Amino acid sequence: MLRISIARLPHGDGLPLPSYATHGAAGMDVVAAEDLDLMPGQRHAVATGFKVAIPDGYEIQVRPRSGLALKHGITVPNTPGTIDSDYRGELKVIMINHGSEPFPIRRGERIAQLVPAAVTHAEWDEVDELCETARGAGGFGSTGGHGSL
């Protein structure tokens, strides 16, 4: 099991640490450490009240909660968001309201999921030509659209 150091900030006192809601959950629920009303079309970096020290070779991915997205149009616009292992500031969740009504975010309510993930670093090998494939340079929609399913 991966161990991640976490430090509460003063405005995070009394809030639960990120945790898995069920045994099979892939993401840990994280809660808001502030109150606000997110207006339609508005974005806001929601405070969580803690900071972390992610081990080298890992990141934390920030993902939206599916229920908020479906029921209210509330999501994380840069999904998945990445928290890098060398970042030591407060973890904040960028949220956007795609709905038509103001959405209340209240301290202690679940706002997103956190998924620790291994990071693979790569190096580029510059070449004059790439090997051929059956697909070739076919891009967006070239393998068939939903109508062919």
Rank of each mutant, 00 (worst) to 15 (best):
Q42S: 07
T133K: 11
R110D: 02
I74Y: 08
Q42N: 00
V127W: 00
H121Q: 11
L130E: 09
S85P: 08
E132Y: 12
G99Y: 01
G24L: 07
L149N: 15
D84W: 03
G138N: 13
I83E: 05
E123K: 12
A69S: 14
V115D: 01
G139W: 11
A117I: 00
M95G: 03
R43V: 14
M28L: 12
A117E: 10
P10S: 01
I54G: 08
V30N: 02
Y20E: 05
N97I: 02
G147T: 15
T48Q: 01
F50N: 08
P18A: 05
G147F: 15
E101K: 13
A69I: 03
A137W: 11
P64C: 14
H72R: 06
V76Q: 01
A137D: 13
D29P: 03
R106T: 13
M39V: 03
R107P: 00
E132L: 11
I60N: 10
D125T: 14
V115R: 00
I94K: 10
H23D: 09
A26P: 02
I96K: 14
H146A: 15
L70V: 14
A137T: 15
D128A: 14
K92D: 00
R107W: 04
L68S: 07
K92A: 07
L15R: 01
P116Q: 08
P18F: 00
T120H: 12
A122C: 08
G81S: 07
G67C: 05
L2E: 02
E34L: 14
H44C: 09
G81T: 12
D86C: 04
T120K: 09
